[in-house]
Every structure is written in C-alpha cells, then in structure tokens.
C-alpha cells in the first residue's frame, strides 16, 4: 500500500510544478485542483480520511471556485466565442486529465482490493477524536477562528465594495444644468 502514497506524492509534485510554470491562470488552476486532489489521497494514506474530505471540499472546491470567479470578473469585457473555443483545445485539459486518471486508478484499486487505504504501519485517527479534541482543549482556537472569519467577511466586503463616486450637490446641480 505504500505504492499508493508514492504515486500520489509524485502526482502532487508534478502538478504543482505545472501550476507554477503555466502562463494561463485557468490552466494553472486546473493543475492546482489536481494537486489538491493528490494531497487529499496522501492524507487518506496517512490515516486522515476526514481531512482528505475537507481538503477536497474547501481547497479544491471553495477556494479554487472563488479564484475562478474573480478571474471571470476581471476580464469580463474581452471574452468572445473564439477565445472560448481556443480554450477548449485538447492540449489544455489532457495533462490534468492524465494526472487525475492516475488518482482515479488508485481509488479503483483501493476499492477493488477492499483493504483499508492506510499503509500497514499507520493507525487512523478518526474524526471523532478530532472533534473531541477540537471542542475540548482547543475550544479557544475555535472561537478565535470564528472571530477571524467574521473579520474576513467584513474585510472582504469593505475592500470588494465599489466606492460610489461622491459629488457635492453644488457640482451635481451644475453638471445637470450644463
């Protein structure tokens, strides 16, 4: 079962190298998703299946989608059908597809073998222990996280808001008259 770990690690390193060498942000994000999926498989083999699920949901899901939304907002004006067609070339998606196929093959192998995905030496730390620890000794950290998330929401709203152009009413009347 150690082979599962090594293949996932190789996929993670390869896709991360592809992320930092791309020129197109969307291509980089495709490889970034593959990298997060590979790291999730590594978590699985290390005996942290709940963290693997969280990695996929939050990193590969929420954060990447957020970045994609912002990219779409930034060049909304200059998009056209021709470039959309250009984006769907096979050379764009074949790399991430191959790397994800490797991960899928690993998943199929694990399910078909019917064994626990961890390496034999590793004892899984299940989500129940994590929850007991999170809301026991680490309760202060959870509260601090809540405060930080609130600050993050307020900060993102404040920064992302389009500032209305404030014109004095004298100038407004003059511009209306002119």
């Amino acid at each position: 079962m150690e082979l599962t770990f090594y293949i996932a690690a190789a996929v993670a390193v390869l896709s991360t190298i592809m992320v930092i060498t791309r020129y197109n942000i969307i291509h980089a994000l495709l490889y970034l998703v593959v990298s997060f999926l590979a790291v999730a498989v590594v978590f699985f083999t290390l005996g942290a299946p709940f963290m693997a699920a969280l990695e996929i949901i939050i990193y590969a899901g929420a954060i990447v989608v957020l970045i994609i939304f912002v990219i779409m907002m930034l060049n909304l004006t200059q998009e056209d059908v021709r470039r959309e067609k250009e984006w769907l070339k096979p050379s764009v998606w074949v790399g991430p597809a191959i790397l994800s196929a490797v991960l899928l093959a690993e998943l199929v192998y694990i399910v078909a073998a019917g064994t626990s995905p961890q390496t034999e030496a590793v004892v899984a730390v299940d989500a129940k222990l994590v929850g007991l620890s999170l809301f026991g000794p680490y309760i202060l950290g959870v509260q601090l996280c809540g405060i930080m998330l609130t600050a993050g929401i307020v900060g993102a709203y404040h920064l992302g808001r389009h500032k209305k152009k404030v014109i004095h009413r004298f100038l407004q009347e003059r511009s209306a008259a002119a």
Binding site: L132, S133, G152
Partner: peptide, 25 residues
Amino acid sequence: VQPDGQVMFIFILTMAAAEVSVGLA
C-alpha cells in the same frame, strides 16, 4: 497518533479560506 495535527490542519484551512477572500478583494 494524536488528533492535534488534524486540529491544526482545520485551523490552517479556516485561515486559508479567510485569507483568500480578503486577498481576492
């Protein structure tokens, strides 16, 4: 074989989510 590492990972995850939203703004 302690849950503390995973607890720290949850904190890092929360921090990353807050950081990316403020950073994108």
